[in-house]
Structure formats: structure tokens, C-alpha cells
């Protein structure tokens, strides 16, 4: 049974008199605990697909159902709540908040979750240990190396225990050794039950996933 159901998903951008078809009539079913790669050349619609899937963007047409909830029938605030519950984002540029420490960055999703200090502390310790940056927890985000920053970003994506991880070029800014460690971590998370969708044009990343979706000109071609 599909966990994520994407039906006739289209997205158009309007640039003056020009219309850009960033996503054209995409239909996909993704089952629970899948680990899949989204590939394609630059401008093929990979990132648009990921932002639509995560509810960061609204489609021109079509629907995205997560756990039978039609995301785009919800209000903006309801989509935010759904995202908090189901989805963790990992970005190529990490997008950490520079003025917050590692712990504070990781705890961001919990700041609105109504968890007690004790619960937050326990969850934080557990997740930092999992991604291997316990010793850096009091450092400011911009004092860390690229690999460490990506681990913080992954910890932040995992802290509220979402079922889906959406990663946009997660190894794009990392050297191959650090990139491999991140991919190892993704494999572990997938084996623990997370559905992982990785946007990438790196073959090494693609090879480690179990299914590949290939986009070209906004269309799903493979």
C-alpha cells in the first residue's frame, strides 16, 4: 500500500509573459520505508518535486497524499503541522541558523512541539549520538566543518521522529569521505523505518538507493 501518492502533479512558474513548466503531470506511488533517488539534469524539476512533496510550494494542479491526507486541501498552517509531524528536510547548503548552537539548531522543531525540557534533552542526546556530534553540541553552527554541519542538519530533520526524510543534494557540498558517512547514516535510518527521498545527480548516491526516479523538463521519464 502506498504511503505517498502523487497524482497529476504539475507546477508552472510565470516569468512575465513566459510560462515555465517546472513539473508536468507527475504520478508516483511511494511505499512506506522506501529509499529512492530523484535524478535528472539541472532544471529538470528535481528540487521543485521535493519542495512540492514537502509542502514548501503549492502545485498548479494535482495532489500529494501522505498517509491518505491530501496535503494541498489543507491550510498553510495545517500543512506546516503535517510537515512537522511527517517530514524532515535536509538541504545541500545545510541551512543552519548561524546564531544558534548545534543543540539549539537541532531542537528547533521541538520549540513548538510542547515537549518538556527533560524530554527535549533526552531526545537531543539520543539524536546527537546517532549522528556523531555530541561533543560539538555547544558550538555555534558556523564554527563547524561542512560534514559536521550536514550532520546537524540531519539531526534537526530527525529530532521530531518524522517518517519521511527529504534530502536535496545532501552530499553536494561535502568531500567523498564525509559524503559516504552521510549516506551510511541514511541507510541506517532507512533500515530503522524511515522513507528517504534524495534528490541527487551524483551516481554514488543513486547507486545506494533502491529505486530511481528520473526527471527531464519537468516530466518523470523513468
Amino acid at each position: 500500500m502506498s504511503f505517498i501518492e502523487i497524482n497529476n502533479l504539475s507546477k508552472k512558474y510565470y516569468n512575465g509573459s513566459q510560462t515555465v513548466n517546472a513539473m508536468v503531470d507527475v504520478n508516483i506511488s511511494i511505499t512506506d520505508r522506501e529509499y529512492l533517488a530523484v535524478t535528472g539534469p539541472s532544471g529538470s524539476g528535481k528540487s521543485t518535486f521535493l519542495s512540492l512533496l514537502g509542502g514548501l510550494n503549492k502545485p498548479t494542479n494535482g495532489s500529494v497524499l501522505i498517509d491518505d491526507i491530501n496535503m494541498f486541501e489543507l491550510t498553510t498552517n495545517q500543512i506546516a503541522s503535517l510537515r512537522r509531524e511527517y517530514i524532515g528536510f535536509v538541504f545541500q547548503s545545510f541551512y543552519l541558523i548561524n546564531y544558534l548552537t548545534v543543540s539549539e539548531n537541532v531542537l528547533l522543531p521541538l520549540a513548538i512541539a510542547g515537549k518538556s525540557q527533560k524530554e527535549q534533552f533526552e531526545m537531543l542526546e539520543k539524536i546527537l549520538e546517532k549522528v556523531g556530534i555530541v561533543d560539538k553540541k555547544n558550538r555555534l553552527a558556523d564554527e563547524l566543518s561542512g560534514g559536521e554541519q550536514q550532520r546537524v542538519a540531519i539531526a534537526r530533520a530527525l529530532i521530531n521522529e518524522p517518517l519521511i526524510i527529504l534530502a536535496d543534494e545532501p552530499t553536494g557540498n561535502l568531500d567523498s569521505k564525509t559524503g559516504n558517512k552521510i549516506l551510511d547514516l541514511f541507510e541506517t535510518l532507512n533500515s530503522e523505518g524511515k522513507t528517504i527521498i534524495v534528490v541527487t545527480h551524483d551516481d554514488k548516491v543513486r547507486e545506494r538507493t533502491r529505486r530511481v526516479l528520473e526527471f527531464s523538463d519537468g516530466k518523470l521519464i523513468n
Partner: peptide
């Protein structure tokens, strides 16, 4: 803007 985008991505609502 980036920060607001991150807040949104981690599930914060407008009023938060």
C-alpha cells in the same frame, strides 16, 4: 529570509 524559510521547513506556523 533564509531563516524564515528554515522555520517554515521545520514546521513552524505563521504565528509562531
Amino acid at each position: 529570509l533564509k531563516e524564515i524559510g528554515v522555520f517554515r521547513a521545520v514546521g513552524m506556523r505563521g504565528f509562531e
